[in-house]
């Protein structure tokens, strides 16, 4: 478990991160979200020991990060770039080596990843000869080749086309499934919504909201359901559980009273109409994000 306690980082004159605490467990994908300048990157850099916190504590499996911890981290920075004049394979092997891998391990792992990401013809090319997307793939490989336990990805999808985005998404999900800690920092709320199990929303260096994504959605949801049906829908309009209903010819969006559970309501309407589709409407993470940031900024 990665635990961050009361982290504060001040730069001359400004406070980039204020008293931030959170923890991430193995097998979780943790979304570090927030608008530009919220302090996401500063938080990441502090975890990585790139910069020292002004105050606060970071621990990994209860211990203070030590030299071995370096070898257990994989990091994909937001701003990309590798040694442009060097060969793809050389760069991958070098960065694997300074993560403590020996050359033969690094070589076999590199081959696996190169195949997985479709870079078969590239290893002996110079990085500057590769397309931007392929350079990003190489960078992704360098971040994960040493099979790290803690993977920190800053905007991992930028620069990828939808097909490659899907490949990367699948990889990230498989990391979590194999019990790694994944910290994902991104602006793409849709992706975060699909991938993250937990999120931390930051604004101006402070926590705005954090927790399991489902809980947060519930908290900010308005207890609404969507029904698609056959039959006479007017019967739904006058039910006592309903606060508000938008009823169309064969579907309706219904806002329920707070104490009413969606499945109770479903049980009730089954006798009135033939239900073809029933689901709880959750607010999108995007909406929560925008609402919360606006709120906290005011």
């Amino acid at each position: 478990m990665l635990k961050v306690e009361n982290l504060t980082k001040e730069f001359t004159g400004t406070c980039a991160v204020k008293n931030l605490s959170f923890s991430v467990e193995e097998g979780k994908i943790f979304g570090l979200l927030g608008p530009n300048g919220a302090g996401k990157t500063t938080t990441i850099r502090t975890i990585l020991n790139i910069i020292k916190p002004t105050s606060g504590k970071i621990s990994y499996n209860i211990r203070k990060p030590d030299d071995n911890f370096f070898n257990r981290i994989g990091y994909l920075p937001e701003e990309r770039g590798l040694y442009k004049k060097s060969k793809v394979m050389d760069v991958i092997l070098y960065l694997a080596e300074i993560k403590g891998m020996n050359t033969s391990d690094a070589k076999s792992k590199a081959a696996v990843w190169i195949e997985k990401l479709g870079l078969e013809n590239m290893p002996q090319k110079k990085l500057e000869e590769l397309s931007k997307g392929n350079q990003q793939k190489v960078q992704f490989i360098t971040a994960v080749i040493h099979d790290p336990d803690l993977i920190i990805l800053d905007e991992p999808f930028s620069g990828f086309d939808p097909i490659n985005q899907q490949i990367i998404k699948d990889e990230i999900l498989s990391f979590a499934q194999s019990g790694k800690i994944v910290i994902l920092s991104t602006h793409q709320m849709e992706t975060a919504e699909k991938l993250c199990t937990d999120i931390l929303l930051l604004n101006k260096g402070e926590e705005v909201c954090s927790g399991a994504l489902n809980d947060i959605k519930k908290k900010f949801g308005s207890n609404s359901v969507k029904v698609e049906y056959n039959g006479d829908g007017t019967a739904l309009n006058s039910l006592p559980e309903v606060i508000h209903i938008d009823n169309y010819s064969n579907s309706a969006e219904v806002q329920l009273k707070e104490e009413i559970l969606p499945q109770e309501f479903l049980r009730k309407i089954i006798s009135l109409v033939e239900v073809k589709y029933y689901s709880v409407i959750e607010p999108s993470l995007n909406k929560i994000f925008i609402d919360l940031i606006k709120q906290s900024s005011n």
Partner: peptide, 17 residues
């Protein structure tokens, strides 16, 4: 300058002291 401008330096110093 190169390592600084492409942020490689961040990868390097998150790998070794």
């Amino acid at each position: 300058v190169e390592e600084k401008s492409n942020r490689l330096i961040e990868i390097l110093i998150s790998s070794l002291s």
